[in-house]
């Protein structure tokens, strides 16, 4: 006779039926699904930082300020916070799934690509907006697939559409396109993701 347990997983006399076994397996696999709470933090952090940078750069440009790009220095503390917080989360994570590793690799590769684009942007006269928006589309939509969260998939589509718009529109529109992209690609899905978890 097989051992069996009650709902609190303590020993009982009742044997577990095959159907109960399958139900238990299904329930535990659902339990192991990735906690999405932490993901929304990064979308909101970078959503606000980039949105503020685009808005400020646009205003400074309209005021004929000579170096509006200086507002992008705002991203330096965001990088530091991101690296520090992700390392801290990695050390204290109570469970690690294969999807966690995929997500980490995806966003780390993305970070390296963005860093490379910014570092060598001078080679193409910093005409980077369209390329950055297209690069943003990939990890955003793939994260949506990993988290099974459609607003992020649509966020990736918004980045892609804004990337196309960025290729077609004049320089004066680039900050507006960037702002629309970051609000629709990071901020809206980020808040929806946070609210989804609050309601679970």
């Amino acid at each position: 006779m097989f051992e069996s347990y009650s709902n609190t997983m303590e020993p009982t006399a009742q044997p577990m039926t095959p159907q109960e076994s399958l139900d238990l397996i299904t329930s535990m696999i659902r339990q192991a699904q990735r906690n999405v709470q932490q993901s929304s933090y990064y979308f909101l952090l970078w959503g606000w930082v980039v949105a503020l940078s685009h808005a400020s750069a646009y205003v400074l440009l309209m005021m004929d300020y000579r170096r509006p790009y200086l507002v992008w220095l705002l991203t330096i503390p965001a990088w530091i916070i991101t690296v520090y917080k992700s390392r801290q989360q990695g050390r204290t994570a109570r469970s690690v799934s294969h999807l966690d590793h995929i997500t980490w690799a995806l966003w780390t590769s993305f970070g390296i690509c963005i860093f490379t684009l910014v570092a060598f942007g001078y080679k193409i006269n910093f005409q980077l907006n369209a390329v950055i928006l297209l690069v943003c589309a990939l990890p955003t939509s793939v994260s949506g697939v990993i988290l099974r969260f459609k607003p992020l998939i649509w966020g990736g589509v918004c980045f892609w559409l804004c990337g196309i718009a960025s290729f077609l529109l004049p320089a004066s529109w680039q900050h507006i396109v960037g702002l629309v992209a970051i609000v629709s690609g990071y901020l809206v899905p980020g808040y929806l993701l946070r609210n989804k978890l609050k309601n679970v």
Binding site: F2, E3, S4, Y5, S6, M9, M16, P18, S21, L24, I25, M28, I29, Q31, A32, Q33, R94, S95, V96, S97, H98, D100, H101
Partner: peptide, 27 residues
């Protein structure tokens, strides 16, 4: 059925670990 797995708590643990690379005791 494998008697080692056909027990609620052990099966629950194995099901969780099948979906994860690692998990802490408290988890």
């Amino acid at each position: 059925l494998d008697p080692l797995l056909h027990a609620q708590l052990r099966l629950a643990v194995m099901s969780l670990l099948m979906s994860l690379e690692s998990a802490e005791f408290t988890f």
